[in-house]
């Protein structure tokens, strides 16, 4: 299936969870926030929230800023 990840269309395994996606990307879950179709996914739900075809995912973190 295809999802839109940080604005880019990418291929991912069917039924992949948010937690699995982060793991595949090598992203530590502690310091990021994830939005699925404009709703925040709480960290406790990462492993039980499966993604669907066409989902829009945003993964953000903190960068330098004023």
């Amino acid at each position: 299936m295809r999802i839109v990840l940080n604005g880019d269309s990418v291929e991912t395994a069917d039924g992949c969870t948010v937690g699995e996606l982060l793991q595949q990307l090598g992203i530590s879950r502690e310091r990021v926030a994830v939005e699925l179709n404009a709703d925040i996914v709480p960290k406790v739900d990462y492993d039980r929230r499966p993604l669907s075809d066409g989902d829009k995912i945003e993964i953000v973190h903190f960068v330098g800023g004023g």
Partner: peptide
């Protein structure tokens, strides 16, 4: 200290400010 919230860059090094 202030920080900004931005998309994780999926192409580059995973090194981060924090």
């Amino acid at each position: 200290i202030t920080v900004a919230v931005r998309r994780v860059n999926l192409d580059r090094s995973k090194e981060s400010l924090l």
